[in-house]
């Protein structure tokens, strides 16, 4: 029993399916990620990758099956509760707080780590000033890591595309996750930006002791960085394993090269 607990994955999905009307977006999905791993989830457009993230974060509830974080079931949990339990994410279609400043975008994500109450905030007494100062300093540090400190006072909507994607990651980190889910973080970036981003992901993972799950539809990109990869097609896992194993898999070659 104790041995089993030691090996317990950080996040685990068992026989998870998600049905939208008649469409089975995800079927019999089995998945696990261990603490500290960097895992990729790849597959063609419409394969169900984002749906998997929405299931992991409580945006959707699984039609069947169960998802567990640290052994605790996520069934029935709302997204904010799952964030409190230690999962943070970014969005493929960027969802920043666009009319707010870059700094405020990050500050908001410290929501569950702020130690003053409404009364202290309104009366500006007690821990208010000290906590505001701490949050601001930590937010600026995160922005610095993602080369956004110079833009702290700018509105998020005015950032260039690549910077918006980086801000999404900075914001997710501010939520203090154990597990970070990145949904196509390099989409729309040029090759040099992508390369820098992958370096950054590697670095923050070490620096923050994170477990990272990365969605990408460009296979070559994840090959270099991920330790394990799941390949999704039509909502089903068609292959999983190390990048080398997956690359050689005939099913994967067929799915990606379009062979019959």
């Amino acid at each position: 029993m104790s041995k089993q607990q030691e090996k317990r994955p950080l996040l685990e999905a068992r026989d998870v399916s998600e049905v939208f009307g008649g469409l089975k977006a995800v079927s019999d999905f089995n998945f696990h990620i261990n603490k500290g791993e960097l895992v990729g989830l790849i597959g063609p457009n419409g394969a169900g990758k984002t749906t998997v993230f929405n299931l992991f974060t409580g945006v959707y509830q699984p039609t069947t099956g169960e998802i567990r974080l640290d052994g605790r079931s996520l069934t029935g949990k709302r997204p904010y509760q799952i964030t409190q339990m230690g999962i943070a994410r970014t969005f493929q279609n960027i969802r920043l707080f666009s009319e707010l400043t870059v700094l405020d975008n990050v500050k908001i994500a410290f929501h569950n780590h702020v130690k003053y109450n409404v009364l202290e905030a309104v009366l500006r007494v007690g821990r208010y000033y000290a906590e505001e100062e701490r949050i601001e300093a930590q937010s600026l540090r995160l922005l610095d890591i993602f080369h956004l400190k110079d833009k702290a006072g700018e509105l998020a909507k005015n950032l260039p595309y690549g910077a918006q994607r980086r801000l999404e990651i900075a914001r997710a980190l501010a939520a203090g996750p154990k597990l970070l889910l990145l949904d196509e973080p390099a989409a729309g970036m040029n090759p040099q930006e992508t390369q820098e981003l992958m370096e950054m992901i590697r670095w923050i993972r070490k620096e923050f002791g994170l477990t990272v799950l990365l969605i990408e539809h460009d296979m070559s990109l994840v090959m270099g960085i991920c330790e394990r990869i799941y390949v999704l097609e039509y909502g089903m896992v068609i292959a999983s394993g190390t990048p080398e194993e997956v690359q050689k898999d005939p099913e994967v070659i067929r799915a990606y090269l379009g062979g019959e």
Binding site: T83, L96, F97, I108, E132
Partner: peptide
């Protein structure tokens, strides 16, 4: 004071993007 503190920022986040707000723990 409310809107310049964490509870107020949570409200602003809801206005800006409810799904993202919820995903940030609000």
């Amino acid at each position: 004071n409310f809107v310049n503190a964490q509870p107020g920022r949570a409200c602003l986040a809801i206005r800006e993007n409810e799904i993202a707000a919820e995903s940030m723990g609000v």
